[in-house]
Design a protein around this nucleic acid. Sequence first.
DNA 1: TTGGTTTATTGCAATATTACGATTAATAAC
DNA 2: GTTATTAATCGTAATATTGCAATAAACCAA
Lengths: 107, 107
Amino acid sequence: MGLTKSEIFTTQQNRIAAIAKVLGHPARIAILQHLLKVQSCICGDLVDEIGLAQATISQHLREMKNIGLLKGDIDGTKVCYCIDEVMFKEMGGIFTELFQADLKGCC
Amino acid sequence: MGLTKSEIFTTQQNRIAAIAKVLGHPARIAILQHLLKVQSCICGDLVDEIGLAQATISQHLREMKNIGLLKGDIDGTKVCYCIDEVMFKEMGGIFTELFQADLKGCC
DNA sequence: TTGGTTTATTGCAATATTACGATTAATAAC
DNA sequence: GTTATTAATCGTAATATTGCAATAAACCAA
C-alpha cells in the first residue's frame, strides 16, 4: 500500500523513524556532511558539490528543514542553509539512547 | 524516478544512508525496541505485539536481517530472532561519530 | 526597466515501499 | 499419515519517493 500505519505506533517510535528516514538517503547525508564542514552554504553550492539537479537538491533541503534539522536564512536571492544546533544535538541524543543498551543474550 | 543515484555518492555515505533507512520505519523501531527488551523472540510474537500482518512483519524482519542488524536462528518451525551485537555496536558508533561534531557558526 | 541570479514549486515519469491475502514449505504433534 | 503451527514468499494494490525539466517568484545589478 505504501502507507505506513502510524496510528498503531507510539509517538516516540514515529518520531525516531521520521528522523532516521531523513538520514536514509545518501544525498541528505552528503548535505549534512558538507554543512558540518563549511558551517553554512547556499543551495547552488550543494548542486555543484553533489551533482544532482537544483530541483532535486531543493527538495532534499526542504525535507531536512521540515523535521527541523536545517535552517534557511533568506539573504537576497540566496538562501543560507545551516544546521540547527538544537535539533542536531537532540538527534544525536536520540541515537545515543537507542544504541546505548547492552545486549545480554541471543539465540 | 524513485531510483537513488548511488553511484555519485561515497561508499560511506551510501552505507550510513542504508543503515538509517532501515531505522526509518516505526515498525522496525518497534521490532528493535522489543528485541532490546526481551533479547529474542519469534516472528509470531512480533505480530501479536505490533499488530501488523504476519507477511508484513516478515518483510520488515528480512530488511533488518539484510543489513545485518538481526540474526534469525531456525528452531523447528519457529525462527528465533535477535539483535546482532557486532552490527548493533557498529551502528551505534556510526551515529555517535556523525553527531559528535560541534557546530561553530550559523547564518 | 531590463537582464541575470538564485531558489521554490509544479508536473511528470519511473521506481520503491508498505501492507495484506493466499499460498507454500517445513517441522511438530498426534 | 494427518493435521496444526510457523514463517517465507508471491502476487497485487495503493501510496511514497526520487529525479528532472520547466516555470515562477524574488531579488540584485546595470
